[in-house]
C-alpha cells in the first residue's frame, strides 16, 4: 500500500510518454507549423501530389527493385529524376545540404521524424550535362548514360491510373 504513490506516479509517467506524439507539438519551436516545402521546377510531378504524399515510398521501392534487379530504368521515375525537378540551387549558388530543411525530402522527413538514408549513398544533386564536367573537377569522365535524370524525357501516362502499377507487382522478395 505504501508503494501506491510510486506505482501511480510511474503509470502517469508512462501515460505521458505514450501520448507524447500528441502533445509535444506545443513544446516544439515551430509550434507545430507545417513544414515549408521548397517549390519544384516543371509543371507537374510524375504523380498527383496527394498520391505522392501517401505512396511515394511504394513508388521508390518498386522503381528501386526494377532498376537494380531488372534493369528497367525509367528516366523520370528515378531518384536523380526526382532531384532534377525537386532540387535547385539556393540563393548562395550551392545545393542544399541533405540535413537542412531546405532540402526537399528532408523538409517533410525532419518534420515527421522519419529518418531516410538514401543520401548516405545517393548523390543529392541533380545531374545535367554541364553539371557533370563541373562536378568531376574539370576533366570530363566517359559520357554518363544519356537520359538519367533528364527532366525533358517524360514517359507517357499509364492508362488505368497509377495504383494498378503497384498492386500485386511487389518484388518477390517482399513477400517474406
Amino acid at each position: 500500500m505504501r508503494d501506491r504513490p510510486v506505482i501511480l506516479g510511474g503509470l502517469a509517467l508512462l501515460l505521458l510518454l505514450l501520448t507524447a506524439p500528441f502533445w509535444h507539438d506545443a513544446l516544439s519551436h515551430t509550434g507545430g507549423a507545417l513544414p515549408a516545402i521548397p517549390r519544384a521546377k516543371g509543371a507537374h510531378c510524375v504523380r498527383p501530389a496527394a498520391w505522392m504524399r501517401k505512396n511515394h515510398m511504394k513508388l521508390l521501392m518498386r522503381v528501386r527493385y526494377e532498376a537494380v534487379h531488372e534493369g528497367i530504368r525509367n528516366r523520370q521515375e528515378s531518384l536523380p529524376g526526382c532531384l532534377g525537378c525537386h532540387v535547385s540551387k539556393l540563393a548562395d549558388g550551392k545545393y542544399p545540404s541533405v540535413r537542412s530543411r531546405k532540402f526537399f525530402c528532408n523538409a517533410c522527413h525532419e518534420y515527421v521524424g522519419v529518418r531516410i538514408d538514401c543520401f548516405s549513398c545517393h548523390s543529392n544533386r541533380p545531374v545535367s550535362g554541364a553539371g557533370i564536367v563541373a562536378q568531376s573537377g574539370g576533366e570530363a569522365p566517359p559520357a554518363a548514360p544519356a537520359a538519367i535524370g533528364n527532366p525533358a524525357i517524360v514517359p507517357p501516362r499509364r492508362a488505368g491510373g497509377s495504383s494498378t502499377a503497384l498492386r500485386g507487382r511487389e518484388a518477390p522478395w517482399r513477400w517474406l
Binding site: S120, H122, V127, A144, P145
Partner: peptide
C-alpha cells in the same frame, strides 16, 4: 568510411 560527392549514376556508401 563516409563518402561524399558520389556520382549520381554510381551511388555508393559506407558499410556496404
Amino acid at each position: 568510411e563516409e563518402i561524399s560527392g558520389q556520382k549520381p549514376w554510381a551511388p555508393r556508401g559506407k558499410g556496404t
